[in-house]
Design a binder for these strands. Structure first.
Lengths: 226, 226, 226, 226
DNA sequence: TATGAATGAGGGTTCATTCAT
DNA sequence: TATGAATGAACCCTCATTCAT
C-alpha cells in the first residue's frame, strides 16, 4: 500500500528527470550534428535546450556523457529494429530490414549522424556502440548470403566483403541526408530505396539474357559484355 | 639572361618553400588523421614536422589553411586519376577506375581520411573539395550506366541512386582502413576488391539460370526465388 | 497569562529551530574538519545533516554564517572553561586549566579544528573569535607568571613571550589530533599531558639539586613555590 | 668544443626558465599566503606575477604544482639548515638550531606559511613535505634529550612528547608573524627568542637553588651539563 | 627565416544561492 | 517549512596565434 503510494510519486519524479535528460539529449544532438562534437559548446547546448549551462550538469556528469547517452539511446532503438527484423528469410525480409533501417535513420537523424561522425574519431563510440551494432547486422546479412551460396542460389562471393558493400550502399544513400544537404526521404521513398538496394544487390545492373546466363553458370566469361 | 639567372634562384627558393609546406602538410595530415582536425594541436603538428610552432605560420596563415591545403593537394591527385581513367567504356575500365581509386586512397591514406572526416562537418571542405570530385566521378559513372541502359544492356535503374550506391560500396570497403582498424590493402588486394565491386554491381548476387533469366528479361517476377 | 501560554509555544518552536541549527552546525563542523572550509560544499553538509540543500538557508544566511555560528558556539564553551578555571593560584590550578582545555579540545574536536584552521586564513575568525579568547588566556597566564616573578619564585622572563610558548606547547600536543593523524587522548591521558606541560614549564628539563628534588619527589608542595 | 658552446646557451635558457618559475612561485606564495591556496585564483597569481594567466601553464602543469614546487623549494632550504646545524651537542648548538630555524621562517615567510597552512588540510603536503622534515628535527631533538636523560642531566621525561612541546614553543612564537599580525623578528630578536626558548626548555620558570644558580649566572658551563 | 615564450579568449565544470513547488 | 532543480558567476585550464629575439 505504502509502496503503491510512493511508487507513482517516485515515478513522476523519475519521469520528470528522464524527460529533462531527453530534452538535453535532443538539444545536444542538434548542436553536435551541426558542428561536430568537438566544436559544440555546452553553452550552446544549454541555449538550445533553453536552460542554464549549469543545469546540464544536474543531469549529466559532463559533455561527453551526453554523447554517450545519445549512443546508448540509439542502442535500444536499434535492438527494437533487429527484434522486428526477424531472421532475414527472403527478399521481402531484406527489403523490410533495409526499409526499417532507413526509417530509423530518418526518425533520429541527428542521433545517427553524431554516432557515425564520432565513430570516425572516437574509439569508444566506435567499438562500444557502432561496431557492435554493425557486427550484428553484418552477421545477419552474412548468414543470409552464406545460406544462399550453399543452396547455390547465390554466386560464390566473399560474404564478408559483400556484406560490407551492402551496408556501404545503404550508408551512401543516406550520407547526403545525414550531411544535411538533402531532405530526409519520406516513408514511401524509404521503401523505394530499400527495393532498389535489394534489387541491385540480388541481380546487379545487367539485363539477364539466356545466353549469358548459361555461360555464367558455367563460369565462362562472356566476351561480348564489357 | 638576367631572368634565367634569377629564375632558378627564385625557383630554388620557391622549391624550398614548397618543400617546407609539404613537410607541414604531411605532419598535419598524420596528426589530423590520428586525432581529428578539431583535437589536433598546432603544437603537435609542429613537433611531428620537427619545427617550432611559430614556423608553421610562416607557411600557412592558420591551422585551418593547412587543412585546406591538404584538400587542394588531393584535388590535383584526383584529377590525375580521372585523366588516366579515360572514358569508362567497358568492364575493364570500371575495374581500372575502382582499382586506381583504391590505390589512391591507400597512397594518401591520411589525406583522404581527413578530407572525408572533415567533409562531414565542414561545409567548405564538403562543397569546395569533396562534393566537386564526387560529382565528377558520379557523372562519369552515371553516364556509363545511362548509356548501357539505353543500349538495353543494363536494367532500367535510377542511375543517380545507383551511382551513389556504387560509391558507397567502395567507401564501405575502405572505411575500416580509413578508421585505422584494418591494414591498407596491397595492390593485389586492391585489384581483387575492384573486381568484386564491379562484379557485384553488374551481376548481383544471384546465380543466373535460364528460366529466371528468360522471366526476368520479360519483367516477370519469379516466384520461386526469395 | 496569555503570555505564559504563548511563551512555551514560541519557546518550543524556538527550541526546534535551535536544534535544527545545531544539527546543521554539527554536520558542517564534520565536513569542514574533514576537507577544510573552502573545499566543503553545501551539498555535502546538507547530505550529512540529512536534509535538503535549500533547508540550510532557512537557518543560516549562507555557508560562511555556519562557520561563524560554530565560532560563536565555541566562544560560549570557552567562557565556561574560564569561569571554572578560577584564578590560577598554584600548580594545581595550572594543571587543571590545561587539563580542561585539552578536554574541551577533545570534546569539540571538529569545532576547534575548524576555528584554528580558518583563523590562519580568515581575518574575521582570527580577530573576533580566536584572538579574543587567546588574549584572555594569555592575560591569565601572564598575570600568573608576573606575580611569581615579583615574588621571586620565577626567574625574570618575558612573560608575554613565555605565555605564548606555553600555549604553543599545548597546541603542539594537540596538532596531530586536530590533524586527524592521532587518536584523541582519553581523560587520563589529558591529565598526564597537562602535568607534563606544567612540569616542563615550571622546571625545565634539567635535573634539580638534591634539596629541592627531595621535596618535590615526596609530593610535598614546597610552600614558597606556587 | 661544440658542447662548450652549446652548454652556456642551454644554461642561459634554463636559467631564464628557472627565474621565471621563481617569479611565479614568489607571486603564488604571496597570493596563497594572503588568501589560502583554495581561494587563490590563477588569475590573481598571474596578475601579481605580472603576466598572462596562460603563461603560468608554460612553467607549471597546474595550480597545484606551483604549491608543490614551493614545498620542494623549502625542502632544499631546510636541508641546508640541518646540514649547518650539526649534531646538537650542547646548549649553544640548540640555540643555534632554533635561531637558524627562525631565520629561515623569516626569510621565506610566505613559503613557510603556505606549507604549514596547507599541511593542515592537504595530506600530500603534510606527509611528503612537512611531516618528513618535522620528523627529522624531532629525531634530532629526541636523541639530544634521551642522551641527557641517560647521563642523568635531564629529568626522566617522555622525550617524544617533550620534543613536540619544544617545536610547539617555536611555532607559537612565530604564529603571529606567519599570520601577518606581527612584524617578522630582526636577526637580533631571532637570537633572543632562541635563547628564551632554550632556557625555558632547560630550566623552566622556577628560580634555581643557590649552588646551580651561581654556576649558571657566571656563565660558566657546568661541565657535566650539556 | 626560425624560434618558442607570451598571450587571452573561450572551453568545460563547480557550487553557493535562489525560488517555485 | 522543506525541497531540490535551476541558476550563472567564476573557477582552472587549453591552445591558436602573435611577436620579440
Amino acid at each position: 500500500m505504502n509502496v503503491k503510494k510512493i511508487k507513482p510519486f517516485q515515478s513522476r519524479r523519475e519521469r520528470r528527470i528522464e524527460q529533462r535528460r531527453q530534452e538535453i539529449m535532443t538539444a545536444a544532438a542538434q548542436v553536435f550534428a551541426e558542428q561536430g562534437y568537438a566544436y559544440a559548446t555546452t553553452k550552446e547546448i544549454a541555449a538550445v535546450a533553453d536552460m542554464a549551462e549549469g543545469t546540464l550538469y544536474n543531469y549529466f556528469p559532463g559533455k561527453r556523457d551526453i554523447l554517450l547517452a545519445i549512443a546508448d539511446e540509439m542502442q535500444c532503438i536499434a535492438e527494437q529494429l533487429f527484434a522486428e527484423a526477424g531472421s532475414l528469410e527472403n527478399r521481402r525480409d531484406m527489403v523490410f530490414l533495409v526499409e526499417r533501417g532507413l526509417e530509423m535513420f530518418v526518425a533520429r537523424l541527428n542521433f545517427t549522424r553524431i554516432l557515425l561522425l564520432e565513430a570516425l574519431v572516437d574509439d569508444v563510440i566506435l567499438q562500444e556502440f557502432v561496431q557492435q551494432r554493425l557486427n550484428y547486422i553484418a552477421a545477419l546479412v552474412a548468414t543470409f548470403i552464406n545460406e544462399r551460396i550453399e543452396a547455390q542460389v547465390f554466386r560464390e562471393v566473399d560474404s564478408g566483403m559483400t556484406t560490407r558493400m551492402v551496408l556501404g550502399m545503404v550508408l551512401a544513400l543516406m550520407l547526403p541526408v545525414l550531411r544535411g544537404v538533402q531532405a530526409p526521404p519520406t516513408p514511401v521513398q524509404c521503401h523505394d530505396l530499400a527495393v532498389a538496394v535489394v534489387d541491385l544487390l540480388l541481380d546487379g545492373l545487367r539485363v539477364r539474357s539466356v545466353v549469358e546466363d548459361a555461360a555464367l553458370s558455367q563460369g565462362v566469361s562472356v566476351p561480348v559484355l564489357c
